[in-house]
């Protein structure tokens, strides 16, 4: 547990978080690893955890009737998954390890419970997730704009 606490405390996503909160969060954390090609989760499944990548790369994929698309790839120090935050807590895409990937898996029900019990912790978590969500929304907008193809 001490190792997990240290990883959580030193991770950029939790930078500046109070020691007590780090301990609370670590209680919901565990170390996981995925081999290349292994899925972290599939679309429609219960979003009962999220992942903080320590090493490796993960592709977020969506399947259409005739093809599968990678919508984003994520790497070291990045967060995989935000569906655990919002009911009905279901994944909206597949996540696949592109290479050997090590991560901290956070038990979503555990963390949601602690956030309900202590709204200060909940607010701290929201302050960390909101910028990630906004950054990804902006990136998605740029992708939709399909900006390349006009310069000569």
């Amino acid at each position: 547990m001490e190792g997990l606490e240290r990883i959580v405390r030193e991770h950029p996503f939790f930078a500046g978080l109070k020691e007590g909160f780090c301990q609370l969060i670590s209680g919901c954390a565990k170390n996981v690893r995925f081999e290349a090609g292994q899925y972290l989760f599939h679309e429609g499944q219960a979003a009962d955890q999220f992942y903080i990548l320590r090493s490796g790369r993960v592709a977020l994929e969506m399947s259409a009737p005739t093809r599968s698309l990678t919508i984003q790839t994520l790497g070291e120090d990045e967060i995989v998954g935000a569906s655990w935050l919002v009911a009905p807590y279901r994944w909206g895409f597949d996540a696949k390890a592109l290479e050997l990937t090590r991560a901290i898996s956070m038990d979503a029900a555990c963390l949601r419970g602690k956030c309900e019990d202590d709204h200060d912790l909940g607010y701290e978590m929201m302050k960390r997730f909101a910028p990630v969500l906004i950054q990804r929304l902006q990136a998605t907008r740029l992708q939709i704009l399909d900006v390349y193809g006009t310069r000569s």
């Binding site: 994929e61 990136a139 390349y148």
Partner: peptide, 12 residues
């Protein structure tokens, strides 16, 4: 920006 799942590089 856009890739199918057979692309091993970065997407984003």
């Amino acid at each position: 920006d856009h890739a199918e799942t057979d692309w091993y590089g970065s997407v984003g």
